[in-house]
Amino acid sequence: MMSFRYLETGANPAAFNMGLDEAILESVSTGTERPTLRFYAWKPAAVSIGYFQGVRDEVDLERCAELGVDVVRRLTGGGAVFHSAELTYSVVVPESHPLAAGGIMESYRAVCAGVIGGLAVLGIAAEFAPLNDVVASGKKLSGNAQTRKRGCLLQHGTVLLGVDLDTMFTVLKVPNEKLKGKLIEDVCARVSSVSDMTGRTVGYDEAVPAFERGFADALGGLGERSGPSPAELARARALAEERFASRTWIFRR
């Protein structure tokens, strides 16, 4: 199996991050680039919502504006995510690739093997929890989402390195303010982070090489760490501006 192209693009605004995932999808789709793994982070912190979610339902837009938190709608379904201390990855392969061939559930499992492998390098025993989570000791450490477009599979997901529940529940709307305290307790019981589990602070720079190893095993080898092509960068910036930062896109539901 040909090794994956491996990109590490650091921390960027939300619209650019989503634009680059789509630009990679396009370049793999046309055969310009080979199957690709990308690691990235978010600066400023951001909320991403699922393709089918209502932005006003899920996000406190005023608080996000006050706190300088980006808001973006993803190409993928699933729920709202507060992106702060985390490592985010995306994987793009043609649908004909063995990773995508076994159907949606099996492809989630196959790509999430990279997350599980990376966690193992950091000393955390985790497992796949269908449809799209990775858990350790029964707590969620990673959420994942995929879409299939232009003959390709795009899966992106997060690995929680730390959890800031206070900010998370400030920027995400809760169904009932009176139950907020209880809700935070519930989330504490169901969600954890790499830093919680290892008992020390693990940042993005330490996580990258660990997940590099995990994904190299899961994907059958990675090329040298590099950046996107100039064409992809230009396309990512255009998509960021025209689609992901546009009110039409963000408020479409």
């Binding site: 089918f52 339902d57 379904g77 699933g78 709202a80």
Partner: peptide, 12 residues
């Protein structure tokens, strides 16, 4: 009609 939520649909 408007359907919203954190579900997945392929193709969207």
């Amino acid at each position: 009609v408007a359907i919203r939520g954190d579900f997945f649909a392929h193709p969207e």
